[in-house]
Amino acid sequence: MVVWDEDGFQGRRHEFTAECPSVLELGFETVRSLKVLSGAWVGFEHAGFQGQQYILERGEYPSWDAWGGNTAYPAERLTSFRP
């Protein structure tokens, strides 16, 4: 999975191949867009795999509404991930 700290695949970029309990440890404040290259990941609103969670299947997510636009409580950012 590849993530960016700005919408539209802009800004700082990082690629994950294993779980990440906090993007803050990588110098990111948040993740605002992402691409899942294969498989599925779970993205969490807060560090430590806490808060609202989203199943992220293979594909592109250019902004928060692409992963959470249909929920009652959409998270505008993700800060931890698990494959």
Results as ranks from 00 to 15, higher is better:
3 V>W: 00
46 H>P: 01
5 D>F: 11
7 D>H: 13
73 Y>A: 13
32 R>W: 01
63 S>M: 06
36 V>R: 00
31 V>C: 05
2 V>R: 04
72 A>N: 15
38 S>E: 11
37 L>T: 06
43 G>M: 03
39 G>R: 02
62 P>T: 09
3 V>L: 03
71 T>W: 08
48 G>P: 02
28 F>K: 02
7 D>N: 09
14 H>C: 08
10 Q>R: 11
10 Q>D: 05
23 V>S: 03
17 T>R: 11
36 V>N: 02
71 T>L: 11
60 E>Q: 14
35 K>P: 01
77 R>W: 10
79 T>D: 03
1 M>L: 15
7 D>G: 06
38 S>N: 13
28 F>Y: 12
17 T>P: 01
25 E>W: 06
64 W>R: 14
53 Q>R: 12
75 A>I: 11
5 D>L: 05
56 L>R: 00
70 N>P: 11
13 R>P: 06
12 R>H: 15
54 Y>I: 12
65 D>K: 09
53 Q>T: 14
39 G>K: 04
72 A>K: 12
78 L>V: 06
6 E>T: 04
57 E>G: 11
21 P>C: 12
75 A>P: 14
28 F>D: 03
6 E>S: 12
38 S>K: 14
56 L>F: 12
6 E>I: 04
72 A>C: 13
5 D>H: 04
52 Q>W: 03
2 V>E: 10
8 G>T: 03
5 D>N: 09
11 G>D: 01
13 R>C: 13
22 S>V: 00
62 P>V: 06
45 E>M: 04
25 E>P: 15
68 G>E: 12
8 G>F: 06
74 P>Q: 14
34 L>V: 10
76 E>Q: 15
39 G>T: 00
42 V>S: 04
38 S>A: 07
23 V>H: 00
56 L>A: 02
57 E>S: 11
75 A>F: 10
32 R>A: 06
64 W>F: 09
45 E>R: 09
73 Y>M: 08
38 S>D: 15
37 L>P: 03
48 G>K: 10
40 A>R: 15
46 H>D: 12
24 L>F: 12
64 W>Q: 11
34 L>I: 06
16 F>N: 02
10 Q>L: 04
15 E>S: 10
29 E>M: 11
15 E>D: 07
3 V>C: 07
66 A>Q: 11
59 G>L: 00
25 E>H: 08
73 Y>P: 11
34 L>Q: 03
6 E>N: 04
71 T>Q: 13
9 F>V: 02
67 W>E: 04
6 E>Y: 02
69 G>S: 12
19 E>G: 12
75 A>S: 14
10 Q>C: 09
35 K>V: 08
41 W>Y: 06
17 T>H: 10
63 S>C: 12
31 V>A: 05
37 L>N: 06
73 Y>W: 11
50 Q>H: 03
12 R>W: 02
25 E>Q: 12
31 V>D: 03
3 V>E: 02
28 F>W: 13
74 P>D: 14
8 G>Y: 07
33 S>V: 00
22 S>K: 02
2 V>W: 06
8 G>I: 14
10 Q>T: 08
25 E>F: 13
77 R>N: 07
32 R>K: 14
54 Y>S: 08
27 G>N: 13
16 F>K: 01
14 H>N: 07
2 V>L: 07
43 G>D: 02
19 E>K: 06
54 Y>G: 02
58 R>T: 11
79 T>E: 08
78 L>A: 01
19 E>W: 03
33 S>Q: 01
4 W>L: 04
46 H>K: 07
79 T>Y: 04
38 S>L: 03
18 A>L: 11
35 K>L: 00
58 R>E: 15
67 W>Q: 15
33 S>F: 01
75 A>T: 11
21 P>S: 13
17 T>F: 09
4 W>V: 00
19 E>R: 05
1 M>R: 02
11 G>S: 03
2 V>H: 13
24 L>I: 13
15 E>M: 10
23 V>Y: 03
77 R>P: 13
20 C>I: 09
34 L>A: 10
74 P>E: 13
15 E>N: 04
48 G>W: 06
12 R>E: 04
15 E>K: 07
13 R>L: 05
77 R>I: 11
69 G>N: 10
76 E>N: 13
30 T>A: 09
18 A>H: 15
60 E>I: 09
47 A>V: 11
70 N>V: 13
76 E>M: 10
50 Q>T: 06
72 A>D: 12
60 E>D: 08
70 N>L: 08
14 H>R: 14
3 V>T: 05
5 D>K: 02
41 W>D: 05
21 P>T: 14
22 S>I: 02
20 C>R: 00
21 P>A: 15
11 G>M: 00
74 P>H: 15
46 H>G: 12
35 K>R: 07
71 T>N: 13
9 F>I: 01
4 W>R: 01
28 F>G: 02
58 R>Y: 08
51 G>D: 04
20 C>N: 00
12 R>Y: 04
7 D>W: 05
22 S>D: 15
15 E>L: 09
72 A>P: 11
58 R>F: 08
65 D>R: 09
55 I>R: 09
20 C>F: 01
55 I>C: 05
11 G>K: 00
72 A>H: 11
32 R>G: 07
66 A>G: 06
71 T>R: 10
49 F>S: 03
22 S>A: 04
51 G>T: 07
69 G>V: 07
64 W>P: 15
62 P>N: 05
35 K>E: 03
74 P>T: 12
10 Q>M: 06
11 G>R: 01
54 Y>L: 12
78 L>R: 00
40 A>K: 07
65 D>N: 15
20 C>A: 04
17 T>D: 14
66 A>N: 08
40 A>W: 04
20 C>Y: 01
47 A>G: 07
61 Y>D: 07
27 G>C: 05
3 V>A: 07
75 A>H: 15
66 A>R: 14
33 S>M: 00
15 E>H: 09
58 R>A: 13
25 E>N: 06
77 R>M: 14
40 A>E: 13
70 N>W: 08
33 S>G: 00
54 Y>C: 14
22 S>H: 09
70 N>K: 10
7 D>M: 06
50 Q>R: 13
22 S>E: 04
70 N>C: 14
55 I>W: 05
57 E>T: 10
17 T>Y: 10
37 L>R: 05
